[in-house]
Nucleic acid binder design. Structure first.
Length: 800
DNA sequence: AGTGTCTGTCATTCT
DNA sequence: GTAGAATGACAGACA
């Protein structure tokens, strides 16, 4: 059933995408500002970001059930996680992967092509992955958007967001009354707004709630005809809001207000908001300002230009300087990964259970704390697995609206909402290929984009863009992150294939940390092989052996028969301490014998301990073997080739002594015994080979240690890099804020300046100049800084 | 049958 | 000069 729905939904989404591609714009974003809470709840869940749910803790405390009774996906997620933890408790990394592909499909409200309405409820889609949930199913908060488009909060009264795929099993639950929830959410938002007012947040943050509160009578889904009017109104508001320096006409009251100030919203600090209010009261931003961002990002505006705009002739400035240059999406993604990884390391060093979603959430949380960055507000535990595949069908104006979506209006919505976003490693390439640039930047820099609407100067660099431009996380970063974050084996391997690692080291190619291959496996396999290799034909003596004697000796060994070299190897391998590599899951599957300096199997008295360190299966095998064969034969089986040669040559001391005795003692030992030349030669060969064997083992161990250390160094460097990137983002953000403040103050000062006749100075002819002593001078633009001051300029002290 | 891994061994260099 | 360590290269066993 789910599959049927999936495919059906896929068809719908593809159809919607097709519509958007041929110019029939399906634009959701224009709804976001006025209708945001419902839509937001559709996408991310009910507005409860301010509610302190214990959602985050549930992931760790519960076994996955009962987190959110309305969310089937969440239950599924926790069930997966529970199973995952169980599996991990077995020291196996097995990550069941759910896959989600979120498609952002926009439609043009004017060209009423409701993708959802034209298609049937169950939207099936996805070429690569299954669109399981875009809306992050919240039955109470959303209404089976897949079931009917009109049911989705009646966004504009007549059409709604299409192409949102629901969970099939939530359709019924999603048919709940949206009106009730909308109202509840409105009330909740209003309450929260009041709280935030107390905390100093501006009302601008809650445009929607204020709107709803002011006109609570006209709920979104009450009357379509009213909604049509209101839709037009808020479109005005939006577009004016987006316009730079354009006086905003309130959509409902018709008042001319500098609404664009409000677009700063939450991303500005309180002082800045106060400043904005001051500006709001002082001047209407009616004239062109030199600070206004004049050109929209071509990438962002491009689609909008090709499509009938909803702005009723008003421009969509969208000053997003970060998009001026085409971004390397892969770099973006890798940088994001790096930051996530950093935060993951910061929050949980053990971090075996952390996943990418947690990282995402951590990132969001951090940025939310920082106040001006993104504030996704997605519950940390709500994001389940690691695979997010956001397929963006069209993004005409998403870059402008998406910020708002994820900004203040979105924050409160996601507290309870299990947005099941997953980063699919299998779709990692899809992410790169299908992620719109604006999508990423909009996701992670929404507030900044919004502030750009007001006063951002074009020269202001977007921190994230510059960050992304400069940060080049290597492929190993992504791959290792995927491995560390618990990607499934298939996903990781696929990711690895995609990354086309050129590393000559194949530490983990054969085995995966997920694979249940451990020392026990090797032991058991060796044991099984030993049982099958009952007859073993010893190879001829090689090397320095003295040949005839040895040949005869080995002929005798053949008479003994049944030599099983696996057995000694097996038992010696049991000495290895796998915990040594537990911190490196990539190395878990390497079952080398790192007990290089331990006594070899030739030291017979140690065999019980050797076997004692074997696994149970190994010991059982050993007992069985000892029952069958006499001890002498067993000793032969435990012997190495040199030992057997030594025995054949009747060397009167053990190979252990031959190899490990100091030179003086060794020579003394040789002098004590009357040995033939062949025996002496064999002894020296045995000693040489034994020494070299240990040397080779040590050499390999050193190699491995070197690799481990290098890997650790890479991790450290990656962590440092991510930290530095984060710091850079913060710095850039602060710089941007400061510039904005300066610009605002500039405009405030400039707007209040009057010449002798009481007329304001035209901004096109005059500008303010700052002097070193803090004073501000107004000078004609034609004059350079070095030119003499004009006689009519008015120095004015500037307060900050 | 082909391939990758592990291990032992040899050759060589260096200490 | 010898012993031994270190290491690259090779081959056999094995999965």
């Amino acid at each position: 059933m789910l599959y049927l729905k999936k495919y059906f939904t896929e068809g719908l989404i593809q159809f919607t995408i097709l519509l958007s591609l041929i110019g029939v714009r399906v634009d959701v974003d224009t709804y976001l500002n006025s209708q945001l809470p419902p839509l937001r709840e559709i996408i991310l869940g009910p507005s409860s970001a301010y509610t302190q749910t214990q959602f985050h803790n549930l992931r760790n405390t519960l076994d996955g059930y009962g987190i959110h009774p309305k969310s089937v996906d969440l239950d599924h997620f926790f069930a997966i996680r529970r199973l995952l933890n169980q599996v991990r408790s077995l020291d196996h990394l097995r990550v069941p992967s759910t896959e989600l592909n979120a498609w952002l499909v926009h439609r043009d409200p004017e060209t009423v092509v409701s993708a959802a309405s034209q298609s049937s409820p169950s939207i099936a889609l996805d070429n690569g992955g299954s669109l399981e949930d875009v809306n992050s199913p919240e039955p109470s908060a959303m209404r089976g958007t897949g079931s009917t488009s009109e049911s989705t909060y009646n966004l504009s009264g007549e059409d709604s967001l299409g192409a949102v795929a629901p969970e099939a099993n939530q359709e019924q639950g999603n048919r709940d009354s949206v009106d009730e929830l909308s109202k509840e959410d409105i009330d909740l938002i209003d309450i929260l707004w009041r709280q935030d007012i107390d905390l100093g947040a501006g009302r601008e943050v809650f445009n929607y709630s204020s709107r709803q509160k002011d006109g609570e009578a006209d709920k979104p889904n009450e009357a379509n005809e009213e909604a049509g009017v209101r839709e037009e109104d808020w479109r005005n508001g939006i577009n004016l809001q987006e316009g730079q320096g354009i006086t905003l006409v309130d959509g409902e009251t018709g008042e001319s207000i500098p609404e664009q100030l409000s677009s700063l919203g939450t991303q500005t600090s309180m002082s800045l908001q106060e400043c904005l209010r001051l500006l709001e009261a002082t001047f209407p931003f009616g004239e062109e300002s030199e600070f206004q961002a004049t050109e929209a990002d071509p990438q962002l505006r491009g689609p909008a230009e090709n499509v009938p705009s909803t702005s009723q002739g008003l421009s969509l400035p969208a000053p997003l300087p970060q998009s001026d240059a085409p971004l390397d999406l892969e770099q973006q993604w890798q940088d994001i990964m790096a930051i996530m990884e950093l935060q993951d390391m910061d929050m949980n060093n053990t971090a075996e259970n952390t996943n990418l979603n947690n990282n995402l959430n951590n990132t969001r949380a951090d940025t939310s704390e920082s106040g001006t960055m993104t504030s996704f507000g997605v519950p940390q535990s709500s994001l389940i697995n690691q695979d997010v595949s956001l397929h963006q069908a069209s993004l005409p104006s998403c870059s402008q609206d998406l910020p708002n979506l994820f900004n203040s209006e979105l924050d409160p919505s996601v507290g309870q909402r299990p947005t099941l976003l997953r980063l699919s490693s299998s779709n990692s390439s899809n992410i790169n290929s299908t992620f719109g640039v604006t999508n990423l930047t909009g996701l992670f820099l929404p507030p900044l984009n919004s502030t750009n609407n007001l006063t951002s100067s074009p020269v202001l660099p977007d921190p994230f863009v510059s960050l992304l431009e400069e940060s080049m996380l290597d492929e190993i970063s992504l791959l290792d992150l995927a491995m560390e974050e618990g990607f499934s084996q298939a996903q990781a391997s696929q990711l690895e294939d995609e990354l086309d690692s050129d590393s000559g080291l194949s530490l983990d190619s054969g085995h995966s940390p997920v694979s249940p291959s451990n020392s026990e496996t090797s032991c058991s396999s060796a044991a099984s092989s030993s049982s099958t290799s009952a007859t073993f034909s010893e190879e001829g003596a090689v090397g320095y052996s003295t040949d005839s004697e040895v040949a005869t000796a080995e002929a005798e060994e053949g008479a003994v028969g049944g030599y099983q070299p696996e057995y000694s190897k097996l038992c010696r391998m049991s000495y290895q301490d796998p915990s040594h590599f537990h911190n490196l899951p990539q190395l878990d599957s390497i079952n080398h014998n790192h007990t290089y300096n331990l006594p070899l199997a030739s030291s017979y008295p140690e065999q019980p301990q050797l076997l004692g360190s074997c696994s149970k299966k190994c010991r059982d095998k050993h007992l069985q073997q000892t029952k069958i064969h006499p001890p002498r034969e067993f000793i032969d089986k435990q012997s190495s080739r040199d030992e057997r040669r030594a025995r054949a040559m009747k060397i009167p001391f053990s190979n252990d002594k031959i190899v490990n005795l100091p030179v003086e003692e060794f020579n003394e030992l040789l002098s004590k015994h009357h040995l033939s030349e062949a025996q002496l030669s064999l002894i020296r060969d045995i000693r040489r080979r034994g020494k070299n064997k240990m040397a080779a083992q040590n050499c390999r161990k050193r190699k491995l240690d070197t690799i481990i250390n290098l890997e650790q160094g890479v991790q450290d460097l990656r962590r440092d890099k991510a930290r530095l990137l984060k710091e850079k983002m913060e710095c850039l953000r602060c710089i941007r804020q400061m510039k904005q403040k300066v610009q605002i103050l500039y405009q405030e000062v400039f707007s209040q300046l009057r010449d002798e006749e009481g007329r304001p100075y035209p901004a096109s002819e005059y500008c303010l100049q700052y002097s070193a002593d803090g004073s501000v001078l107004i000078t004609p633009r034609s004059m350079t800084l070095e030119q003499s001051r004009k006689p009519d300029k008015k120095p004015k002290d500037k307060k900050k």
